[in-house]
Nucleic acid binder design. Structure first.
Length: 282
DNA sequence: CTAAAGTGCCGGCTTAATCA
DNA sequence: TGATTAAGCCGGCACTTTAG
């Protein structure tokens, strides 16, 4: 009888650990002035501050972070953080990576330009508990991997909910300026749509705002207009892709939303100061 | 070269604060 | 409590600049 070979190859996203994978987690009551960095990591890491305060620096900006807030370090971010000298923070962290990590974080409104988030007491308590669960998962080896992944998904789910709550509570007279929720959504939209030809008009429609008004809020919050931000973001991504020798410049161009490779090269040179080919050769 | 994007100015609308 | 004023939000219009 001829043997019939039967195979099943799951899609990458269905392989446990490819979509989302926990690297490590922990919690610490820091000593005054305790710091890390400046340095970079090859994965995502979320810190959640339970008590005290400190600073987080990334991309030339410094953020004061206090209890109830958290911050995100992204792969290849040059980051630095330091506990306050008088009221050092106690925080918990979860480090992870995976194909879906970036898109989940975008949904949570956490992008390169918005690495700090603020929770209500209730939200913060819930997220803290999840990290405690992760830390405790080691005591049950049989189900450890499943429990860790489950808690990690719940943690990201909690962050997405938090972003949604923040959006709904952003009203005139509320704590933060009305534009911030919109801007976080705009950044998330750009991060998930940069690889195709997208327009600012489309971005504004996504937010339910007039194009000009959306652009104004964007520039006020981030200092650059939306299209400029999109351009820079595309070129950052292109730079990463160019380091992979296997992709041609034309393929990189298409990957970051350019139909015309010549135009891509022109824009790349404008932003990075050298042609894509020269950039790769370095 | 054209369409899209950015910007300044203006004015309508809503909300909040103040006062008679 | 109703009128008045001030401030912020938001979109229209007209114009210039720039990406594609």
């Amino acid at each position: 009888m001829p043997s019939s070979k039967r195979t099943y190859t799951p899609a990458p996203s269905a392989v446990p650990g490819m979509e989302l994978k926990l690297y490590y987690c922990g919690a610490e009551d820091c000593t005054p002035g305790h710091s890390w960095g400046p340095g970079l990591k090859d994965h995502y890491k979320i810190h959640l501050v339970r008590r005290g305060r400190g600073i987080f620096r990334r991309g030339g900006r410094t953020y004061a972070v206090t209890a109830g807030q958290g911050f995100l370090i992204r792969p290849q971010d040059v980051a630095y953080y330091e506990a306050d000298a008088d009221e050092p923070w106690s925080y918990a962290w979860a480090a992870f990576n995976g194909l879906q990590a970036d898109s989940f974080l975008s949904r949570a409104g956490l992008g390169p330009e918005s690495p700090v988030f603020t929770c209500s007491d209730e939200e913060s308590g819930g997220l803290w508990r999840l990290i405690e669960e992760m830390i405790g998962a080691g005591s049950r080896p049989a189900s450890r991997d499943l429990r860790l992944l489950s808690s990690l998904y719940a943690l990201l789910g909690g962050l997405v909910d938090r972003a949604e709550n923040a959006r709904n509570t952003v009203l005139p007279g509320g704590g933060s300026p009305a534009g911030e929720g919109y801007v976080a959504r705009a950044v998330a939209f750009i991060e998930t749509n940069y690889s195709r030809s997208m327009t600012v008009e489309e971005l504004a429609a996504e937010l339910g705002l007039d194009r000009k008004y959306a652009a104004r809020l964007f520039k006020e919050a981030l200092g650059v207009p939306p299209r400029q931000f999109l351009l820079q973001y595309r070129m950052e991504q292109a730079g990463l892709l160019l380091r992979r020798e296997s992709l041609s410049v034309a393929e990189v161009a298409h990957s970051v939303g350019y139909r015309d490779p010549l135009l891509f090269s022109r824009m790349f040179k404008k932003v990075k100061g050298c042609s894509p080919q020269a950039y790769r050769n370095r």
